[in-house]
Design a protein around this nucleic acid. Structure first.
Lengths: 225, 225
DNA sequence: TCGTTTCCTTATAAAATCCTTAAAAATAGC
DNA sequence: GCTATTTTTAAGGATTTTATAAGGAAACGA
């Protein structure tokens, strides 16, 4: 079972050390030394994220804060900061583990694999929301018997809304979440996509996307949690 | 979000310590001193399991081995065994975390909650005041069973008042707090919104907004915090 | 290269909200 | 009880935001 991991650390020695350790388990490792360049959209491509807390340009905490809302995969901190307060803060931001330096290679591998194992066991491969079933892997949405003829962008918006059902997104946020940081796209482009999505869902008599006047759009949250 | 946890440890002091710590987070804690009596079927009733590794009759590892196949919930080890080999063995048996004694209460709580959070999908942050429940993320107010049909401005005023229950705000302050610094808006505009809010709350027979004559409005502070 | 699909822009219509105005009701002080 | 001030209520228009439709640019595959 190969997983894709992203490791962010300004210490290049540490990067190569971690890379070597985790590649032993058959994972594909991408590394990044500059935290400031890491975008939420990129993080969504990975199965697990590993951040150093102390980095010169942008610390791991603020990076985590920035992406946690849009990224579901486990986020692990690597840190020399052993203080309890920092640890609690890290978990409070939605982190999944907090590995104190100096750590043993064996412990790192064991913890990373434990988190990956849990992800696989609990497959988010497919989720059903409001009458639409999403196959995250295949990037197709199914309603009733037939697959919805979504374009790529339509599917992306749809999936993002459904994944965060109940949360309101502005047009700008949606555009950025789906197409990346260059949010120059006119908000009305998003409106156009929403229209098309609704039209395609109308054939199945479902309309899970609500407009929140003056704010944006949201996927209707099902009553059952 | 209340979860059910089972803590197994032969040390009774440790049991009460852990129980006290985790009950602070609103969880329901069951404890068990005798590992030999813990059956897989029982473990299935819980959202998270916390085992001590070193126990006289039956150690936590063998307990984990016995139940892992039948239990999906996170299993955390509490242990004084700091050796790397034991840690790797624990993860190898399907454990999800490994907390080394002596641990801080804060770390225990942070780690337990991190695992629970991942199990239950995104607990919504919500506060309840005077019969109205606010979903801050979704920007939705709920009374009883149905969501209140607030407009954006109405919701904003409502949330601001409820968030600072008991504090009086002038119309100007409210307008500025909700719509920004350009508080040129006529005070009567706020009065209009207050009227509409009250009208919508009237259907549920609640009126938490009080008029402070000559000053402004405030959200009635409930006796119980 | 051509044709198709997807995406973005523009323009217009429609809808909802917000603000203003004015009159009625309530309050506090005398 | 009377008056001045403040709040409540009601209705209308102005403004803002969204929905819809149509056209053109850009990307993609054959």
């Amino acid at each position: 079972m190969m997983s894709k991991l992203l490791v962010v650390d300004d210490d290049l020695d540490m990067l190569s050390l971690v890379r070597a350790a985790l590649e032993k388990d058959g994972h594909q490792i991408d590394t990044e030394a500059d935290a400031a360049t890491v975008q939420p959209a990129r993080c969504r491509l990975y199965d697990l994220l590993l951040f150093d807390v102390m980095m010169p340009d942008k610390d791991g905490f603020s990076l985590c804060r920035r992406i946690r809302a849009e990224v579901d995969c486990p986020i692990l901190f690597l840190t020399a900061k052993a203080e309890e307060a920092a640890l609690v803060q890290g978990f409070g931001l939605g982190a999944d583990d907090y590995i104190k330096k100096p750590f043993s290679i064996a412990e790192l591998r064991a913890r990373v694999n434990a988190h990956l194992r849990r992800e696989v066991r609990q497959p988010t491969r497919t989720l059903s929301r409001g009458g639409v079933r999403f196959d995250i892997q295949a990037k197709v949405a199914i309603a009733g018997e037939h697959t919805l003829p979504f374009t790529k962008g339509e599917y992306a918006i749809c999936e993002h809304l459904a994944l965060h059902a109940g949360q309101v997104f502005t047009k700008e946020q949606l555009y950025e979440a789906v197409f990346g940081c260059e949010a120059e796209g006119d908000p009305s482009a998003v409106a156009e996509h929403i229209k098309n999505i609704r039209a395609k869902l109308k054939a199945d008599a479902i309309s899970p996307i609500e407009t929140v006047w003056g704010v944006g759009y949201k996927w209707r949250k099902s009553s059952v949690l």
